[in-house]
Computed example of a mutant assay.
Amino acid sequence: MFPKESESKNEVESSGRNSFAASRNTIEDMELETRALTEPLPTNQQAYKNHSLYAIEKWLTKCQILHPKGPILGFCSGHPVYPRACVQTLRTKERWLREGLQVKAKEFPAKVVKQSGKLKKVQFSEDNDYDETDSKGNNELYGTWQLEPLQLPHAVNGIVPKNERGSS
Rank of each mutant, 00 (worst) to 15 (best):
104 K>F: 06
133 T>P: 08
112 V>S: 11
118 K>V: 14
164 E>C: 09
154 H>L: 03
137 G>K: 00
148 E>N: 09
139 N>T: 07
86 C>H: 12
117 G>S: 13
159 I>H: 14
135 S>M: 05
133 T>N: 15
150 L>A: 08
109 P>L: 11
148 E>D: 09
123 Q>F: 05
131 D>G: 14
123 Q>V: 07
113 V>E: 14
117 G>R: 07
111 K>N: 07
100 G>A: 04
128 N>K: 01
130 Y>S: 11
97 L>V: 01
80 P>H: 07
154 H>P: 03
82 Y>S: 12
135 S>C: 13
113 V>L: 11
79 H>V: 10
134 D>M: 01
96 W>H: 03
140 E>H: 14
123 Q>E: 15
136 K>I: 01
92 T>K: 03
96 W>G: 00
128 N>Y: 02
99 E>Q: 06
113 V>I: 14
119 L>N: 14
100 G>C: 02
87 V>E: 09
132 E>M: 04
110 A>K: 06
111 K>G: 06
89 T>K: 02
138 N>G: 03
162 K>W: 02
120 K>M: 13
140 E>W: 08
155 A>T: 05
85 A>L: 09
127 D>F: 10
81 V>R: 04
143 G>W: 04
106 K>I: 11
144 T>G: 05
87 V>P: 08
112 V>Q: 06
130 Y>D: 15
154 H>S: 05
150 L>N: 06
99 E>D: 10
112 V>E: 08
140 E>G: 15
99 E>I: 00
141 L>N: 11
122 V>P: 04
83 P>L: 04
136 K>A: 08
164 E>N: 06
157 N>W: 00
114 K>H: 06
111 K>C: 09
101 L>P: 00
137 G>D: 01
154 H>G: 03
88 Q>N: 12
